[in-house]
Simulated assay, not measured.
Amino acid sequence: MIEENATVVSTTAGRVLIESFRSSACGQCQARHSCGQKAISEWASSKMTQLEIDNPHGLDVGIGDKVVVGIDEGSFLKASALMYLLPLVVMLLLGGLANRWIGTEVSTIIFSFVGLVVGFIGARLLGRQLEKSCQYKPVLLRILLNDTRVVES
């Protein structure tokens, strides 16, 4: 389970609106002092993100509570593969077919671009289907009390 700490902003029946800082892996990286990506990740991670999540265990949370939310690692990897690999595979497939059948550089470039766009559209449509599945949504896992005690579901 991939977990992240957050703060409760509001609650409704079975749903919780949380607010969290975007985090990056740069804080733990050994090369963080000499890497150009650190400045970009610090800028991006300084942004607050609000997200409405499920409360499947019916935990009693209030506004301002510190909570832990999580999403299944396998689901996260599948969604990431869909988002990144599908457009790339379709782009390479159409570009390769155009190169083999038509043989001109311009046709290969055009078909590769069309494949990339088709791949992004396909990823978007498949992503909407996966959105309906509970395993692809973050959920409220537990409440943090005074940063030392933890209330489990």
Score class of each variant (00 low, 15 high):
residue 38 K to S: 14
residue 34 S to V: 15
residue 33 H to Q: 14
residue 50 Q to N: 06
residue 50 Q to W: 01
residue 24 S to K: 04
residue 39 A to F: 07
residue 51 L to T: 09
residue 42 E to I: 09
residue 18 I to E: 10
residue 44 A to W: 00
residue 43 W to M: 02
residue 41 S to F: 03
residue 20 S to T: 15
residue 20 S to G: 10
residue 31 A to P: 08
residue 30 Q to Y: 10
residue 35 C to Q: 04
residue 51 L to R: 08
residue 30 Q to K: 15
residue 33 H to T: 14
residue 18 I to L: 10
residue 44 A to D: 02
residue 17 L to W: 04
residue 41 S to E: 04
residue 24 S to N: 14
residue 42 E to M: 09
residue 33 H to D: 14
residue 19 E to N: 12
residue 21 F to L: 07
residue 19 E to H: 06
residue 43 W to K: 02
residue 44 A to M: 03
residue 40 I to V: 14
residue 36 G to L: 01
residue 51 L to Y: 03
residue 39 A to V: 13
residue 45 S to C: 07
residue 24 S to I: 05
residue 32 R to N: 15
residue 26 C to M: 10
residue 19 E to K: 12
residue 26 C to P: 06
residue 47 K to V: 01
residue 21 F to H: 12
residue 32 R to P: 14
residue 31 A to H: 15
residue 32 R to V: 15
residue 48 M to F: 03
residue 30 Q to L: 07
residue 42 E to W: 05
residue 28 Q to A: 13
residue 37 Q to G: 11
residue 38 K to M: 10
residue 49 T to K: 00
residue 28 Q to C: 09
residue 34 S to M: 12
residue 38 K to L: 07
residue 21 F to M: 11
residue 44 A to E: 02
residue 44 A to K: 01
residue 38 K to N: 13
residue 23 S to R: 12
residue 46 S to P: 01
residue 47 K to F: 01
residue 42 E to G: 04
residue 23 S to A: 09
residue 45 S to Q: 02
residue 49 T to Q: 04
residue 34 S to L: 12
residue 48 M to W: 04
